[in-house]
Design a protein around this nucleic acid. Structure first.
Lengths: 336, 336
DNA sequence: TTGTAAGCGTTATCAC
DNA sequence: GTGATAACGCTTACAA
């Protein structure tokens, strides 16, 4: 089995090895009789070309890299990532690409992962997520001219290909909904402050306040890590101020839920006293009580577009719009 | 940048290319002066060897494959998988391996994915999950002599390396707990009937009944797909029979929660009238009301052991115990 | 149209 | 110890 290569097929079909290669590449120049002879042997023996040799020769591995900049513990159980990974895998499979997932936790390993993936040419391109406001990785990839697509947004460099949720629009929509349903003091709990997504949703939130002629109050703003505990303490903080908020927009479902639990612990009635809205429309939303209203981000669409753009870049086609925006929609449930 | 290879390093260091290779491999035969000269140039230019060339030459890609046999939609949002993937990625990184994730949904693509990953030698070994009672893939991999480790169990073939939860023990523990806390009619809702895990946990459940001298009642057994709707209808079925169960052990948290919601819809008080226990101790458990008691499966340990075994296999070391069992523990919350 | 041969960037086996 | 040199399995000019 291991010694099954093109020369062997060639020998059995009575042609040269180059012809076997041509047949497999679908070269139209080859004579029909030969093609059939070769294909017959290929079928018979179940020959499949060695990806390693193809990679070296073609300088392409047909591997896409996804680098996640979160500690594995933070990644674990996050419904956003399992959906994202599943969608990228599926989409890349359509184009005969595979997905290589890596994490880059510490600064040290972060450097290492970039050496590993791009200098070694182990992958043909990268999908990045969770860009920061000023992102070294992105600067570096641009300098190296390495194909990559960002799921998110990066303004400093124009040439960056990216696919993003309409975060500003989505946060506007959610905040606007809260205000239109009579809420007066809408709070916002973002994720880590450096993340673009945290800033963008804050912007949408501010825009909605402005549209309703309501002043921006920094006391109604909190930040949280991607875990329940941190969200709970951000909520506790908000509850300490008076007047307390009567609505909370969380950066993601886990943050919204952490906040909601904290509010419940304080005896707050939901949604009567405080309404809650999260992001991602994850399975969680349906299970909690009251069920969580959430902004549904179209993760499969995000993954699909990012994958398509990346493959285009790799194959030398310049992606049409370099930036794509995927719309979101509000899924109303009991919490707001 | 692209034209940075060993010959170039060799030229600058004034040595032969073979020496550069030796230095990088840490060959002790090379003279100290040369080694330093070479390393200096390597450092200076930031040279890193090309993984594609190494793969071809060494016949090793340093890539592990994880093949998931669930449709992307079913994978999406499943906390088990994001944790598993994150853990495997982290662990393989320690040994300088990478993870390639693929899905094999349909029978057709399932075949394709195997061609892709193993005949093409794109990955050095495979991690399989969710084995079926009689599993074609496993038979095939064994025939081909391809390195793989199963997360799960496969009895028909002795030589299969596997890491599994102590499913029988864990289901015993959970059922025993329910019976010891006064429950009389404990029901079990498994996953798809063909899966090993469904059978094993049923076995543990039966063992516990027997230990308590309670007869096995098929009317208390249900099966469900990995989604809430299916779990709810399995629960509805159980509630139709009388007497209704006073406790439910679900194969996984989502199934337990789907069942619990259905019970709530029927006005059942939880845990007073019916207790619920799930599996995986996923983030969900804490968010729902009442919070869900769940068997915590040590997914990182599972991933760690599987990865280590697989790498051992790949590198020609026979893993010590071919089958490893990871213990589980019961995390008690409000639902039981 | 088909075959011959030169790489792709390494590693490993030879001689020196 | 070190330097040529032959693979690894495939693609692709170039020659026939």
């Amino acid at each position: 089995m291991a010694e099954l290569k093109q020369v062997e097929i060639a020998r059995l079909a009575g042609v040269s090895q180059a012809t076997v290669s041509r047949v497999l590449k679908g070269d139209p120049q080859v004579n029909e009789a030969m093609r059939e002879r070769v294909l017959a042997v290929v079928q018979e023996l179940g020959y499949v070309p060695d990806a390693r040799a193809q990679s070296l020769r073609s300088q392409r591995t047909r591997l896409l890299g996804l680098v996640v900049h979160r500690a594995p513990a933070a990644l674990a159980g996050d419904p956003f990532f399992s959906t994202l990974i599943a969608s990228i895998v599926e989409q890349s499979g359509r184009y005969d690409y595979h997905l290589c997932v890596d994490t880059a936790r510490t600064a040290r390993s972060q450097r290492a992962i970039y050496e590993e993936l791009l200098r070694t040419r182990r992958v043909d391109g990268l999908i990045l997520v969770e860009s920061e406001t000023h992102d070294k990785r992105i600067e570096r990839l641009c300098r190296e001219g390495f194909p990559f697509v960002l799921i998110g947004r990066y303004d400093p460099i124009d040439a960056v290909c990216s696919v993003d949720n309409d975060n500003i629009g989505a946060a506007f929509m959610a905040t606007d909904y809260l205000l239109r349903t009579g809420r007066q003091r809408v709070a916002y709990i973002g994720g880590p402050a450096g993340l673009t997504v945290t800033r963008d949703r804050l912007q949408g939130y501010k825009n909605a306040l402005e549209a309703h002629g309501i002043g921006y109050n920094p006391c109604l703003i909190g930040f949280s890590e991607f875990n329940e505990r941190s969200a709970a303490s951000a909520m506790a903080e908000l509850l300490n101020h008076s007047p307390a908020p009567d609505a909370v927009l969380g950066l993601d479902d886990r943050i919204a839920l952490g906040a909601m639990r904290e509010a419940k612990r304080h005896g707050v009635r939901i949604p009567d006293e405080i309404a809650f809205i999260g992001f991602n429309d994850s399975p969680l939303c349906n299970y909690v009580e009251p069920s969580l209203t959430s902004v549904a981000v179209d993760i499969p669409a995000l993954a699909r577009k990012a994958t398509e753009m990346l493959i285009a870049l790799i194959e030398g086609r310049e992606p049409h719009p370099k930036r794509q925006i995927v719309p979101a929609r509000l899924v109303k449930r009991e919490s707001a």
